[in-house]
Design a protein around this nucleic acid. Structure first.
Lengths: 250, 250
DNA sequence: TCATTATTAATCATAAACGATCAAAAAGAA
DNA sequence: TTCTTTTTGATCGTTTATGATTAATAATGA
């Protein structure tokens, strides 16, 4: 058992239990206590843990692990159907905005070979389009680790400098009262994208339709179309407000 | 059994079991231990594995969803020594710039628990810092897929809006004539970072010292310090220009 | 307060691994 | 073939990782 391997084990246990004990470490890794001690000293010197008497603890004990839950795999079939419909709206030469919605993310797989420019604040989108024909432009600014996306005033200013032919955005809820979001950050990004885009699509599955949650940040007038799997019958109200309804058949 | 064939076998076993042992390798491939040692050293210099005493281990112990092709694993030991020295210059509260240099990338592992802000144009840096205590700010603009970093006029303007206490940057070459880069994009980013930072460190291993390549984009006056593993004796000229030399002891 | 105990740093010892150097063998070029 | 270059192996002094020992230091409790 060499140092890199031990280091890995130590860091692993530390992140799980929050602390390690020299005696227990020595026993577990089949090394002498002094070697365990030396390992911990080395890792402490590199700032990877805090040395305590007889062991070590995490540097940031109360730090909540930024858990980016990738919701995009939930109801993948429905989301893919919506995204296929969305991708069919995109032609070569388009400049498109994509936000950090979980449905929007699944659009990536369908546009990899298109000759378009994508402007996005979503890191997963950037990663996914890394090996693609698409030219990528990243919105700059502060990174929201939980959402894996960029937000803040710098991001807004950045968006305002660009103009897109189409925007593909997600929302936390949409009703005849307009668009709803669970965070102000997300709301301002959505508003900025919509304002700088010639045509704005909202991608949402049936669970978001008629859902009113937290912040009603904009009216329906800032968007042009909804792509969803919901029955168009349920969407009559939107149609009457001039919104184009595109049904994704599953 | 020639080197390319052995290399393939070694990499294969490494990806399966995560580690190789020199004795076992020598026996298995019918070569002497010293040849096995030489093979591993070669592969370590190329960044294909990490050398340990008596063997080698994988570069990426856990499979990550996205992998960045990275020169940063090449000569990892030297780069780590430089980065340890660099990390020791960083205190909580600092706002630091990091560019897309391969040495700079390895600084991430030593700053994960620091309470600092990092502003960067490098995607691998962003990815590496996503589960850290560090607050991350991404430079916005066009993504250079080859370098996995953001560049362009938007990026420059973004950088100019921020002020950092320290910048940690890489170069393709440095001599008493100044800084050298292999691309204009990279040069302009480096210049912008240095201009907006109170103190600028260049991280470079000995191979970059006195190397003059392609574009001499700036004089030594835009930087404040060099962190390197090169012998300070060779760096007298820099010292006379008022550059602080920090020797990384390996 | 002091005494007891556990932990640590410092020092040393040892075996394994290492780099440097040179020689032999293999491969390639003239 | 002969010469040169590259690869491989052997030898040997040096370095490194590890563990044992012991004195110093810090925590704990009476």
């Amino acid at each position: 058992m060499n140092f890199p391997k031990r280091k890995q084990k130590i860091i692993e246990q530390l992140s799980q239990t929050g602390e390690v004990d020299i005696k227990q470490l020595a026993a577990e890794l089949n090394i002498s206590e002094i070697t365990a001690r030396r390992d911990l000293n080395q890792l402490a010197a590199d700032g990877l843990l805090y040395r305590t008497r007889g062991g070590a603890t995490k540097v940031n004990p109360h730090e909540k692990p930024h858990s980016f839950v990738n919701k995009s795999a939930q109801n993948a079939a429905v989301k893919d159907a919506i995204c296929r419909r969305a991708a069919s709206q995109i032609s070569d030469g388009d400049i498109i905005f994509m936000d950090c919605g979980s449905t929007v993310f699944r659009l990536c797989q369908f546009i990899k070979n298109k000759k378009i420019k994508v402007i996005t604040n979503s890191l997963p989108v950037v990663y996914e389009l890394q090996d693609s024909a698409v030219s990528v432009n990243i919105i700059g600014g502060e990174l929201d680790k939980e959402r894996q996306a960029v937000h803040g005033t710098t991001a807004i200013e950045h968006i305002q400098k660009y103009r897109a032919t189409k925007a593909f955005l997600g929302v936390d809820g949409i009703s005849e009262a307009g668009l709803f979001a669970n965070s102000e950050h997300e709301a301002s990004i959505t508003t900025a994208f919509a304002a700088s885009s010639a045509f704005t699509y909202i991608l949402c599955d049936i669970s978001k339709i008629s859902k009113e949650t937290y912040l009603n940040f904009a009216g329906l007038d800032i968007i042009n179309a909804i792509i969803t799997n919901a029955d168009p019958e349920r969407l009559k109200g939107f149609k009457e407000s001039g919104i184009v309804i595109l049904k994704a058949d599953i």
